[in-house]
Simulated scan of single mutants.
Amino acid sequence: MSTPDLTRRLVAELLGTGLLVTVVVGSGIAAQRLSPDDVGMQLLENSTATFLGLTVLILLFGPISGGHFNPVVSAADWVLGRRAGTGLTGTEVLAYSGVQVVGAVAGAVLANLMYDVPLDQLSTTERTGANLLLGEVVATAGLVALIFALARTGRGMLAAPAVGAYIGAAYWFTSSTSFANPAVTIGRIFSDTFAGIAPGSAPAFIAAQLVGGLVGVGLVRYLFPGAALVADDVVVPHHPHEHTDPAEHP
């Protein structure tokens, strides 16, 4: 068995990120229409669909590309693995991030088409305030720490349900409802619905996510100093080689 070539991995990231945004935006539209007077029920419906959809998408595409679907995760993979010669290269991070953004925008457009939402309207949902940005830092840091902790301790195959559960929970325990993903944030600009974010709010959200990614990397380096050895297996194992027992590497 050989490592999937870069083109196949990029297609997997394109489709995975696109369908993730379709799930987020589509379920947001459905929730808004099914429960028009109950924002709490809308959030419950949206978060449940995202939890289940993300889990399935990681299971489907993870064995090909790792199932990153997130530029912060791809960048963290490079940062942690570069000294050990594992994980993505800098060129691959740029390629992954590019297709993730394209996929995210396409996914929002697909959701709009399915629900007959006008394609020429950007989101008008303002999401501003230091409290929301702090929520994004917390959500993204926790996501990065979780992913690499699972890989480092040989539990990468649990990443699909664990990551899905974390994001589903973070919808509720973070003030920002846990975007935690620059590509998804950009994609959600293109739908003026419950799940959208206004273009003017997106840059600060993305900046907070990058800060959260750095915090997450710092936590991983401190708590799991051998994480670089398993960067090839993030988010889920997708390389043919096998690593030695993580416990053997302090």
Rank of each mutant, 00 (worst) to 15 (best):
M1R: 13
M1T: 12
S2I: 02
T3E: 15
T7Y: 03
R9N: 10
L10M: 11
V21L: 15
A30K: 12
Q32D: 14
L34V: 05
G40Y: 06
S47Q: 03
S47R: 03
T48V: 15
T48W: 01
T48E: 01
A49H: 07
A49C: 06
V56E: 10
V56S: 12
V56C: 11
P63S: 08
I64E: 10
F69V: 06
N70C: 07
S74M: 03
A75F: 15
R82F: 14
R83D: 15
A84R: 15
T89W: 11
T91A: 15
T91F: 09
G103A: 02
G107V: 02
L119V: 09
S123M: 09
T128A: 12
A130Y: 09
L132M: 10
L134A: 15
V144E: 01
F148L: 08
F148R: 12
A151K: 07
A151V: 01
A151F: 01
L158K: 01
A160E: 06
A160N: 02
V163Q: 09
S175I: 02
S176V: 06
D192M: 05
D192K: 06
D192W: 05
G196W: 02
G213V: 13
G216V: 09
G218K: 04
R221V: 00
Y222T: 14
A228L: 05
D232L: 12
T244D: 11
T244H: 06
H249Y: 14
